[in-house]
Amino acid sequence: MTDTPRSRPLRVLAAMSGGVDSAVAAARAAEAGHDVTGVHLALSANPQSFRTGARGCCTIEDSRDARRAADVIGIPFYVWDLADRFREDVVEDFVAEYEAGRTPNPCLRCNEKIKFAALLDKALALGFDAVCTGHYAKVLVREDGTRELHRASDMAKDQSYVLGVLDDRQLAHALFPLGDTLTTKDEIRAEAERRGLAVAKKPDSHDICFIADGDTQGFLARRLGKAEGDIVDESGARLGTHEGAYGFTIGQRKGLRIGVPAADGKPRYVLDISPVDNTVTVGPAASLDVSALTAIKPRWCGAAPDGPGTYTAQLRAHGGETEVSAHLVDGELRVTFTEPVRGVAPGQAIVLYDGTRVVGSATIATTVRATAGAA
Rank of each mutant, 00 (worst) to 15 (best):
R8A: 15
G19Y: 09
V20W: 06
A25C: 14
E31A: 14
G33M: 03
R51M: 09
C58D: 13
E61P: 02
R67Q: 02
A70Q: 04
F77L: 07
V79G: 03
D84G: 10
V91A: 01
A100E: 02
E112L: 14
E112S: 10
E112A: 11
A117S: 14
A117G: 06
L120H: 01
C132N: 06
H135Y: 04
K138D: 08
R142D: 12
E148K: 04
E148R: 12
A156D: 03
Q159E: 13
Y161P: 06
Q170L: 10
L175H: 05
F176K: 02
T181G: 03
D186M: 14
R195F: 03
G196N: 02
A198S: 05
K201P: 12
D207Q: 12
C209S: 15
F210Y: 07
I211E: 04
G214M: 06
D215L: 05
G225F: 11
G229V: 01
T249W: 11
V260K: 15
D264Q: 10
K266S: 13
P267Y: 01
R268P: 00
R268K: 07
V276S: 09
T279F: 11
G283V: 07
K297E: 15
W300P: 05
G309H: 12
R316V: 05
E323S: 12
H327F: 09
R334W: 12
V341S: 02
A345V: 09
A345G: 06
Q348T: 07
G355N: 09
V358C: 12
A362C: 00
I364L: 13
